[in-house]
Write a protein that binds this DNA or RNA. Structure first.
Length: 269
DNA sequence: CCATGAACCTGGTCGC
DNA sequence: TGCGACCAGGTTCATG
């Protein structure tokens, strides 16, 4: 599960290898991998103008359309030159020359979409947490408008883009907010801290090239170092760094959730 | 409007 | 060593 920092890392890595190259065809090794188009529609010679990230999508901008790649849980995206594709290859994007862009995805949840531009994606996604329009005032105002479980709300991509299970747990712990709090009851000072912590944690993780996980490696064996910085995710049974209380693992919004019941306060009214 | 659980897939881990 | 149960970074859909 690549979340925002991991998707950013992948984007930054493939961008220099793709910009200026030409995509000749897309081979859907796993037939469901192309979500809203078929391989025929992408035939031709398409120059890559740019590669960027929006929410958890890697956006490959071509002259007449864009490709949006979503890695879901186990997707990887990297350029291979002329080697045989690995076992769980979901799609092979053939480039002019001897290189292929490989979409490898063990669990096969990942998808590639074709759009004219970003309109469709923007419609269904909230602001980018590292952009200027994500302010503490925006967060304050919009948490107030809802009466939602805070963890579920932060995971909701139509509310805010890019956060996933790891960084939501980390951000809430850093802000001393219990993940079972209700959005509209979190006091102003806590919301300001939350806003601040989301930005600090995400940007620090991007600096570290993301979090290393069991089945998420990239950059040809190199991998992210943010796993060393995790304070709460995966720390169940261990003492909380702030108060030494034993960290618990519970289930919220259907997701494994890590919490320190002593320093994370529950705001429910 | 909100919460919950299932579905989509494969593979790793843990307990017996 | 083997087997079943359960878990996993995400998202969408149906149901209450």
């Amino acid at each position: 599960m690549p979340e925002l920092p991991e998707v950013q890392t992948v984007t930054d890595h493939v961008k220099p290898e793709l910009v200026g190259e030409h995509i000749l065809s897309i081979e859907p090794v796993w037939k469901k991998v192309l979500d809203n188009f078929n391989a025929e529609e992408a035939k031709g010679k398409h120059k890559v103008l740019n590669v960027s990230r929006r929410a958890k999508f890697i956006i490959i901008e071509l002259e007449n359309f864009i490709l949006a790649v979503h890695l879901r849980m186990t997707g990887k995206l990297y350029v291979l030159s002329n080697e045989s594709p690995p076992k769980h290859t979901s799609a092979i994007i053939h480039l002019e020359g001897k290189k292929n862009l490989i979409f490898e995805d063990t669990r096969k949840f990942g998808r590639i979409y074709k759009y004219d531009d970003l309109t469709e994606i923007n419609k269904r996604h909230g602001p980018e947490p590292l952009e200027d329009d994500f302010t503490s005032d925006w967060l304050l105002e919009n948490l107030k408008k809802k009466k939602r479980n805070i963890k579920a709300l932060l995971l909701d991509q139509s509310f805010l883009s890019g956060l996933g299970n790891i960084y939501v747990d980390e951000s809430l712990w850093a802000s001393n907010i219990h993940p079972n709090s209700i959005s509209c009851f979190i006091p102003k000072q806590k919301v300001i801290q939350l806003h601040n912590n989301i930005r600090i944690i995400l940007s620090e993780s991007i600096k570290q090239l993301g979090t290393t996980f069991i089945n998420f490696t990239f950059l040809n064996g190199q991998s992210g170092n943010y796993s060393n910085e995790l304070k709460i995710f995966g720390k169940q049974g261990k003492p909380c760094e702030k108060c030494s209380n034993k960290i618990k693992k519970i289930k919220i919004a259907g997701r494994g959730t890590h919490v320190c019941n002593k320093c994370q306060k529950k705001f429910k009214s």
